[in-house]
């Protein structure tokens, strides 16, 4: 029943934005593994008349290294097609002349090189994984509580993601922890922030209603895209859970088994 609906509206589309982790590949030891059919699905999209961009809240590696990993997995993808939170955060910090205390994964640190980090006046938190120790969180907490007006930036607000050995807590959980501890509201950079989605649309030069977002995260990918006026389709890979289809506030325009299936339907309805 779900299949009939969304691809019909897809005829007027001009661009597609793909989430990466959980849609293209599952992360895990080493490079992780490509999700079956996704490599070909990306190729087919690239051969179509649709524009294609990739949008990730990945913050464990710099964009260059992250894209290199995807290329090793077999994906036809380049750095300029990929939008991730860290470069967006760096521009905000520079614009506002802020000195960050960073609680991020070591692999992300190169993105912040060149920024003054002495005597910090804000905290930037990313998916720090094993670095989310009590002491590291406490250090971030003390910086925040010591500021007249605590300023917290969070690179995404995801709840969890899937690695090959199971579900892992994402940055949003620790963002909420610091918000609660300091009674502040974090500024989210990355999905589902409308500014972030808009920067991708601007790059393609299209309007929201001409774009489709495909992701495995119902709230941040699908809901975030929908609240910008885009269509949002969820795939049943990655962090997808059956309960997503009964979510109280977010309803995907379509739910498909995987990216390959979604691209099949999309291109079929466009006669391609």
């Amino acid at each position: 029943m779900a299949a009939a609906g969304w691809p019909v509206c897809a005829q007027s589309l001009k661009g597609v934005i793909l989430d990466m982790c959980g849609v293209l590949y599952d992360s895990g030891d080493g490079d992780g593994v490509a999700i079956p059919g996704s490599i070909e699905a990306v190729q087919r999209l690239k051969r179509s008349d649709l524009q294609l961009r990739f949008c990730t809240n990945e913050t464990q590696a710099s964009r260059d290294r992250f894209v290199a990993k995807l290329q090793r997995l077999g994906f036809d993808i380049s750095v300029k097609e990929v939008f991730s939170p860290a470069p967006a955060a760096v521009s905000v910090l520079k614009e506002r002349g802020l000195r960050p205390h960073l609680l991020v994964y070591d692999g992300l640190l190169p993105e912040f090189e060149g920024l003054d980090q002495k005597n910090p006046n804000c905290v930037v938190i990313g998916d720090a994984a094993e670095k989310f120790s009590y002491e590291n969180l406490n250090d971030a907490f003390r910086v925040l509580i010591g500021l007249d007006k605590p300023l917290l930036f969070s690179l995404g607000q995801g709840r969890y993601y899937k690695e090959t050995d199971g579900l892992k807590l994402d940055v949003g959980v620790y963002m909420k922890a610091l918000e609660y501890a300091c009674d502040v509201k974090a500024q989210v950079i990355g999905k589902p922030s409308p500014t972030f989605f808009q920067s991708v649309l601007n790059d393609m030069g299209i309007q929201p209603h001409e774009a489709l977002m495909i992701g495995d995260d119902l709230v941040n990918d699908v809901g975030g895209a929908q609240s910008c006026g885009m269509m949002g389709v969820q795939v049943r890979t990655g962090k997808y859970r059956a309960s997503d289809e009964r979510h109280s506030s977010v309803r995907a325009d379509g739910t498909e088994d995987n990216l390959s299936r979604a691209v099949d339907l999309l291109l079929h309805h466009r006669g391609q």
Partner: peptide, 22 residues
Amino acid sequence: YYKRKDGLALGPGPFVTGLEYA
């Protein structure tokens, strides 16, 4: 949070709140 000898330190609340959110 609570006060410990070397300054303020996170209490259980933030971790509970994080898990509630997750």
